[in-house]
Design a protein around this nucleic acid. Structure first.
Length: 618
DNA sequence: CTTCTCACG
DNA sequence: ACGTACGTGAGAAGT
């Protein structure tokens, strides 16, 4: 038996590393006693983060309480993995920091279904996010084990990740190669592997007590664990990639990027991403640049370059001027590079052995509770045409179904702010109700035009986002005077929105700048951006409406069809012959009243590729 | 590490 | 009294 000692918050703690059958017997004795005393913290060390790549391996499984940790060398196989597997299966109160990752690792490498672990798991990362959801960059503690331990347990708690990076380097390894190649005999690796579970075990009761002190309901904590499980199931399922489409697409986009980069180089721009080079070259060609970035540099983003290239927002020729060839080349090179490298190439390189991608779904990422998807970022694929989404396929014999909420944030706003005439509209509107046209008619009468609709749609978003007339004018292209009038009219028709916004800001002030959402979520407000409370209130409840819908979908037995949550939409793959019926069920389980406002969803049935919903014929 | 850009809801 | 667009992930460039 190897043993390491360390001091945490004044206590000497022990990390045990069993080396033979006798040692494993001692682990078993500890495990049985610890299980009687309370929850057991669990963690894994692996070769990397790419759970589904062919070379991925589980290296160690750690168990621990507040004083002892046991690092089981899974990689050694034999008794080591059978003891670890038995212990995992027999734990009835599990503490994990960022449970979704370890659930998926154990599901993939140990064959333990995540459905068997999830009901017994408390995720300390979820607890922390419900106390303060802000990232460190936003002034929060963050939800990493290190900053949480430093805040709640011991300011000098070791940064095990950073510490290991140093060890990797001393062994001639890197951040990338270290996790897979560090010998299991390395004492720092073993110590840190053990300390992580001890810290998790100590964190859980402290965070529970804090949640209770803050009055956060247990129901919210439970709900959030359920959502994490549903997202993990979708991540495990993954999405099928059309490799015969994606691989040539990645090549074609790389060629296109190279071609237009070469054109830009002829105008003195060697790096198309260099703001300084592009702005200098354009100025040298006689173009006048006026827009500035936050830091004061001349702006050369898409909105600036498109008019110079005589292109509208849909990249169609305007015919107003001779296109600037450099602006045109930079625009096209950047788009081809992004689409090719960030999307198409990722589809090909991140595949598992079955030709599927398993993008990571973070069920509780944003300050508002919104989810995020990364590796690749499937929530952000270009939606203007089918080119990228065409590479994602339904299962063989299936079709894609996309069910999205209708104007969800406006409905949530109407419900939360009790906007009388808006609620009346949603209640009487029926299936094809158009809130923006309804608003235009309220203000302008029956003669309201499509253009009026566009202006009031902008005003509506302005309200939800807390924006002003100037930004709205810039976004919609309408004049500032016209927008100012529309916003004023909007406030007359829906006076409750402004009242609610002020009320919510007052509530936040009285609660140390934390607004409590309708679902009990804690939403910290920045002191100099209190107007954002309107958006936080709506966005976070819209997120919880999606979560509620996901739970109903699971209860209806439809989880197996779900592939991806996208804020106001659920993407699914369903057998072609049952698609019509399943689509209606998605609509049904994504529709329910919210404080008297009907939340409604509409399903769209496509073909075999996701791109079929964006114009592809396949 | 920060800034800028660009993809989404 | 006034005015403030919200939330993400990812990569390149420059500090």
């Amino acid at each position: 038996m190897q043993e390491f000692r360390h001091t945490i918050a004044g206590d000497i703690v022990t990390v045990h590393v069993p080396e033979d059958a006798d040692d494993l017997g001692m682990f078993w004795d500890w495990f049985y006693q610890a299980r009687e005393r309370g929850p057991i913290a669990l963690d894994t060390e692996t070769t990397g983060l790419d759970i589904y790549s062919p070379g991925f391996r589980l290296r160690t499984v750690q168990f621990g309480d507040a004083h002892d940790a046991w690092v089981i060398l899974w990689e050694r196989g034999g008794h080591f993995d059978s003891y670890a597997r038995d212990a995992i299966r027999r734990t009835r109160q599990i503490l994990i920091h960022n449970a979704a990752y370890d659930w998926l690792v154990l599901n993939q490498c140990a064959g333990i279904p995540l459905e068997d672990l999830a009901p017994w798991t408390t995720d300390t990362r979820i607890l922390a996010a419900l106390i303060d959801p802000r990232q460190p960059s936003e002034g929060g503690i963050g939800t990493g084990l290190k900053p949480l331990s430093a805040r709640w347990i011991d300011p000098s708690a070791p940064d095990t990740q950073a510490g290991l990076t140093t060890v990797f380097r001393s062994l001639g390894l890197t951040k990338e190669t270290g996790w897979a190649n560090i010998p299991l005999s390395n004492p720092t690796f073993l110590l840190y592997a053990g300390l992580d579970v001890i810290l998790t075990a100590r964190l859980a009761p402290i965070l529970r007590a804090e949640l209770s002190r803050l009055g956060v309901r247990d129901e919210l904590v439970t709900y959030e664990h359920e959502i994490a499980r549903l997202c993990a199931v979708m991540q495990r399922t993954g999405l099928l990639v059309d490799q015969e489409y994606a691989a040539p697409l990645a090549r074609r986009l790389a060629e296109e990027a190279a071609h237009y980069s070469a054109v830009a180089a002829r105008y003195g721009v060697s790096k198309i991403g260099s703001v300084a080079q592009v702005s200098e070259a354009l100025t040298g060609m006689g173009e006048t640049l006026t827009e500035r970035t936050d830091a004061g540099a001349l702006k050369v983003d898409k909105a600036v370059l498109l008019p110079l290239a005589d292109l509208d927002r849909d990249w169609q020729r305007i015919g107003a001027r001779e296109p600037n060839p450099l602006a045109n080349a930079v625009l096209r090179a950047k788009r081809a590079k992004k689409w090719g490298e960030d999307y198409a190439a990722q589809f090909v390189t991140q595949l598992d052995t079955a030709g599927r991608i398993h993008a990571s779904i973070n069920s509780l990422q944003a300050r508002t509770g919104r989810m995020s998807v990364s590796g690749p970022p499937l929530q952000q694929l270009p939606s203007g045409d089918h080119v990228i989404r065409r590479a994602i396929l339904a299962e063989p014999g299936h079709v894609v179904i996309s069910t999205d909420f209708q104007a969800i944030e406006m409905r949530v706003l109407a419900a939360l702010a009790d906007v009388k005439r808006m609620k009346a509209g949603f209640l009487s509107g029926g299936e094809k109700f158009d809130i923006h046209m309804y608003t235009a008619r309220l203000v302008k009468g029956p003669a309201a035009t499509k253009r009026d609709r566009k202006v009031f749609k902008g005003a509506g978003f302005g309200k939800v986002y807390g924006g002003g007339s100037r930004t709205l004018a810039r976004q919609t292209g309408a004049s500032e005077a016209e927008i100012a009038q529309a916003v004023a009219a909007y406030d007359r028709v829906f006076p409750e929105i402004k009242q609610a916004s002020s009320r919510w800001q007052r509530q936040a002030f009285q609660n140390r700048m934390v607004f409590i959402s309708a679902t009990g979520r804690r939403l910290p407000l920045d002191r100099d951006r209190t107007f954002a409370v309107t958006n936080y209130a709506c966005q976070s409840v819209a997120r919880d409406v999606l979560g509620q819908a996901m739970l109903q979908i699971e209860s209806a037995g439809l989880l197996e069809f779900c592939r991806l949550p996208i804020h106001d939409e659920i993407l699914a793959s369903a057998p072609k012959r049952e698609a019509e019926e399943i689509a209606r069920e998605f609509e049904r389980f994504m529709s329910f009243p919210l404080y008297g406002v009907p939340i409604e969803a509409e399903a769209e049935i496509g073909g075999q590729s996701w791109g079929s919903l964006y114009g592809a014929d396949y």
